[in-house]
Amino acid sequence: MPDIIYILEMIGVVAFAISGMIVARQKNMDPVGVFTIGFVTALGGGTLRDLMMDNHPLYWIKHQEQPILILSMAVVFSYSGLAGRIRESRIVFPDAIGLGVFSILGAQLALDLGHSWFIASLLGVMTGTFGGALRDTLCNEVPFIFRKDQIYASISFAGCWLYFLCQWLLASESLALTIGLLFIVIARMAAVRFDIRLQRDHHG
């Protein structure tokens, strides 16, 4: 199981870093900017989670391969024509993967440290959404989590609770993790595709 967790963590890092770098290139940032935005998007949520739970050393300090990977990706993104051909709308899928992976893993770590389901779900949401919020703020965009036309944090919250319930009912950590992760990714993609939102403007 720890190997699966590590693989998922790396998938989440790559997915969120890609989403950050796409936006950074759209904003015509130099390689340092591309790396910075990729870094805070991929590792910002986990850093906040570790700081709030006093979990030291921070995950990415213990696993230096993560910032090294992000640096390598930033070089490729900056000096290849790849990023220029990717539209900003393309960040939705990698962002959804990052949201799913980090929400569930953040919630799981909180459970492992003895926190309640409710506190673990809040920490899961923070882990899943904070990196993207930093990306959008630094790139002068309204973060997904605060946009009325986006359903985002609530999907993360629901996915964490689905993970807890599946873990309790199915007694299978890996199956519960898979179900929670797939729910968040699919629900996020569906929300964007079908314009599902928590609140709509009423014009009367």
Score class of each variant (00 low, 15 high):
2 P>I: 07
4 I>K: 04
4 I>E: 05
7 I>M: 09
9 E>W: 07
9 E>G: 11
10 M>A: 10
10 M>Q: 12
10 M>S: 11
11 I>W: 06
12 G>I: 04
15 A>Q: 00
19 S>A: 11
21 M>P: 05
34 V>F: 02
34 V>Y: 01
37 I>R: 03
43 L>S: 05
44 G>H: 03
46 G>E: 08
49 R>I: 12
50 D>S: 05
54 D>R: 06
56 H>N: 09
59 Y>I: 09
74 A>Y: 06
75 V>Y: 11
77 F>I: 14
78 S>W: 02
79 Y>T: 08
79 Y>F: 15
80 S>H: 09
81 G>M: 11
83 A>D: 06
87 R>M: 08
88 E>T: 15
94 P>G: 02
97 I>A: 00
99 L>C: 02
99 L>M: 05
100 G>I: 01
108 Q>A: 15
109 L>Y: 02
109 L>T: 11
110 A>L: 03
111 L>I: 13
112 D>L: 13
112 D>Y: 08
115 H>K: 07
115 H>V: 04
119 I>T: 14
122 L>A: 10
123 L>E: 03
124 G>R: 00
128 G>C: 07
128 G>Y: 07
128 G>R: 05
130 F>H: 02
131 G>I: 03
131 G>C: 04
134 L>P: 00
145 I>V: 15
145 I>Q: 02
148 K>L: 11
150 Q>F: 11
151 I>N: 06
152 Y>L: 06
154 S>G: 05
156 S>P: 12
156 S>M: 11
158 A>V: 15
159 G>H: 01
163 Y>W: 15
165 L>A: 06
167 Q>G: 14
170 L>I: 10
173 E>Y: 11
176 A>G: 15
179 I>T: 08
179 I>V: 15
181 L>H: 00
185 V>H: 00
188 R>T: 02
191 A>W: 08
192 V>H: 14
195 D>K: 11
196 I>K: 07
196 I>Y: 14
202 H>S: 09
